[in-house]
């Protein structure tokens, strides 16, 4: 059984995003990047499936500029067997959207005869939460979105537990399938320094969108990216009467 895991390179979660002056996006230059945390969880689960013997090979895939190879190296250091970089540079990368990425994954899943495609449920930069679902639809494979548990049942099915309002939902999918990882699926490991060094020797291939025959032109146009409005400072009221009065006059509350 072969698993493909999507690992997106995003601005590190600890960095406070700043909007670019021309309002076309956020500043990414000179900013620390790392693997999208949800993708890290998906990858961890993929590696655990491999360690349990249910999976033979884990392939990490990242679409974007050359720097994505660092993300892929991290994936290899964590335990992926090989990696595929789909280079998308400059303006094309800025407008790379979930549909195009899903098409890329569809093609890679077919070409590599994958049985399972794993994603994080969403990337923390654009929060689109679409790639897994779109890939599933394009491939016409069953999907298990927001998986909190994932196990391989025999050789032909996976069981996915989803956290839903009011409880847990357990679903069974026929393989091949697409699954997206929720927060509690698995706690990602740290890559050991030794494995980081070893990862340098693992294969990292390149496949351009053209080679894959995928049209990555954007379907959505971003009009403007804005900073969230700055929260105004509150005021202190002297006593309860003062509060009541403010509520009446300023907040328009009627008692």
């Amino acid at each position: 059984m072969r698993v493909i895991v999507g690992v997106k390179r995003v601005v590190d979660f600890a960095i406070k995003a700043r909007v670019k002056a021309d309002k076309t996006g956020v500043v990414t230059e000179g900013v620390k990047h790392s693997m999208n945390p949800f993708d890290e969880i998906a990858l961890e689960q993929g590696i655990r499936l491999k360690e349990s013997g249910a999976v033979k090979e884990v392939i990490a895939v990242s679409c974007g500029p050359t720097a994505c190879q660092e993300t892929l190296r991290t994936a290899l250091a964590m335990g992926a067997d090989r990696a595929i970089h789909v280079p998308v540079e400059g303006a094309a990368y800025e407008t790379l959207q979930p549909l195009a990425v899903a098409k890329i994954f569809k093609k890679l899943a077919e070409d590599n005869q994958a049985n399972l495609v794993l994603f994080g449920k969403q990337a923390i930069d654009d929060d689109a939460n679409q790639t897994a679902q779109l890939t599933s639809a394009l491939l016409n494979w069953p999907q298990g979105a927001f998986a909190a548990k994932l196990s391989v049942e025999g050789g032909s099915k996976v069981k996915v537990v989803r956290e839903i309002d009011g409880g847990l939902e357990t679903i069974e999918l026929n393989l091949p399938a697409v699954v997206s990882a929720d927060l509690r699926l698995a706690e990602p490991r740290y890559a050991s320094l030794a494995n980081i060094m070893k990862a340098k020797k693992k294969p990292l291939d390149k496949k351009t969108p053209e080679e894959l025959g995928v049209d990555i032109k954007p379907r959505i146009k971003t009009l403007s990216v804005e900073e969230p409005p700055v929260r105004k400072a509150g005021i202190k009221v002297e006593n309860v009467d003062g509060l009541l009065q403010k509520l009446r006059t300023e907040a328009g509350v009627t008692f």
Partner: peptide, 14 residues
Amino acid sequence: KSTLQMLVDPCAKF
């Protein structure tokens, strides 16, 4: 440089 950079984060995290 990029290898060393990769080693820095996990070491610090540890």
